[in-house]
Amino acid sequence: MANVCAGVLALQGAFREHAAALRRLGVKIRELRALRDIDGIDLLVIPGGESTTIGKLLLEGQMLDPLRERIEMGMPVYGSCAGLILLCREIEDSDQPRLGVLDATVRRNAFGRQVDSFEAALDIAELGAKPFPAVFIRAPFLTKIGLGVQVLAKANGQAVAVRQKNILATSFHPELTADSRMHRYFLDMCK
């Protein structure tokens, strides 16, 4: 992956952790803060953070359309938590700005408030037999899923990790753990 340039959306949130996780796997990183940073990226990561804040900054920075176009053309994208929300076509009870490329409906703060945030070991077949340490923080889950969307993992019976062709999204935060399997799975999607 030495020649690949990964764009990590750095408007707000835990972008430093995603960048570190990708660097550990030998990927070159570019932090995206403005429209001019987008040209030349091969893949995109949208970190956790506050989805309304990131969406608003994407809109004001005129980055929504160019990023959406690239994703629709096949650029691989991975969104965690707020990233997942921004990828979804429908967001329950919200008209906040979004990319809307993932054929699914998401419910924000679906597991509850911060006092309900939790850690759980998830079985994710694509990542091997060892359970994945998943960190859920005021996390969303998907309430409706389109035909072309594959559910990779569930927590409490709810879809929390999905893939639709070049789009990967998780409710939880692999970037907060030392387990790099989810990032590696994403990079394998990019080959």
Partner: peptide
């Protein structure tokens, strides 16, 4: 989980 929310507030 506690420090994690603070990580999400960064920036």
């Amino acid at each position: 989980v506690k420090t994690g929310l603070a990580e999400m507030l960064k920036g």
